[in-house]
Design a protein around this nucleic acid. Structure first.
Length: 303
DNA sequence: GTTGAGCGTT
């Protein structure tokens, strides 16, 4: 019933680490995850039965087996025993790094409890590594969570780890996945469509000025033009002096003023192919490749 | 004031 430390280890034979309990004697799963990223629970060997027993977990709160935690060593549970798989994951990511494909991207987080806030997400995912962006998608009117969000890590290894396992967040299992907008990036088609110097910047916010966009995109190469449609429509066009710079950014999610924007090829003004596929479900690669270049709404005056 | 597979208000 009092504040104390309980002994926790990854394995019964490993050196335990002391994790603080709360004032009421419970231990927060987040406290465990702070030291053991990805942890989803605890177990211990019962002195009576000599069997492993699970520790009661309710809404992210771990409850002592008896009146107190005693002197037992508690062992960390991981989802689906992903502990070993991680080694293979590391090897896989090492290969990718050699190929130079270790760029991070936004991850969609599915299945969030309605109550989960961006701070909660930040706190949880920070146990995996540095987090540079979190979002909880909400209904514009009510402000209610839609039950999903996004997270962006600094490091690719952190991202891979987050993707490779399930996540217990505020009492629900959640999944981290590459969002569909990334799917198209893999399709570096053999017939390169166009070597445009202009890119489409989707998901802009209203507080992004043309000047700020120019300042931001300068880091990639000389910017020759920035166009923001008026009235505000959540996208912009940025033109570079070098087409290779523009192409290298296509498919990327970049973070400007804390918001994740999506870069894709700018379509010629007269293009209206999106009208033909407005009900696109997002499965066919070839269709997808076409739509990736025209998935964003254009003003009707362009039609 | 509800919900539980999904894909980022324009």
């Amino acid at each position: 019933m009092t504040e104390c430390y309980i002994r926790v280890a990854e394995d019964e034979n490993e050196e335990p680490m002391e994790i603080p309990s709360e004032e009421d004697g419970t231990v927060l799963l987040s406290s465990v995850a702070a030291q053991f990223p990805g942890a989803c629970g605890l177990r211990y060997r019962s002195p009576v039965s000599q069997c492993m027993r699970g520790v009661r977990l309710v809404e992210g709160v771990l409850h002592a087996p008896e009146s107190d935690w005693g002197n037992l060593v508690y062992v960390v549970n991981y989802p689906k025993d992903n502990k070993r798989k991680m080694d293979e994951m590391d090897a896989a990511s090492a290969v990718k790094i050699k190929r130079g494909v270790q760029k991070t991207s936004d991850l969609i987080v599915l299945g969030l409890p309605w109550k989960t806030t961006e701070q909660d997400l930040k706190d949880y995912f920070s146990t995996f590594g540095e987090v540079i962006m979190v979002q909880v998608k909400r209904d514009a009117k009510t402000g209610n969570s839609k039950g999903f969000g996004f997270v962006r890590f600094t490091d690719y290894e952190t991202q891979m780890k987050a993707i490779s396992q399930r996540h217990m967040i505020d009492g629900r299992w959640c999944d981290c996945k590459l969002p569909n907008s990334r799917y198209f990036l893999e399709q570096a088609g053999p017939d390169e469509p166009m070597r445009s110097r202009k890119v489409f910047v989707g998901r802009c916010t209203e507080d992004m000025s043309a000047d700020e966009l120019r300042q931001f995109f300068m880091q990639y190469g000389e910017v020759t033009d920035v166009f923001i449609p008026k009235p505000f429509r959540a996208f912009a066009f940025v033109t570079f002096a070098d087409d290779q710079v523009a192409q290298s950014l296509c498919g990327e999610d970049l973070i400007i003023k804390g918001t994740s924007v999506h870069i894709s090829n700018a379509e010629p003004k007269h293009n209206n192919i999106h009208h033909l596929f407005s009900n696109f479900p997002g499965r066919s690669p070839s269709l997808a490749a076409m739509l990736e270049r025209s998935q964003y709404p254009f003003p009707s005056s362009h039609v």
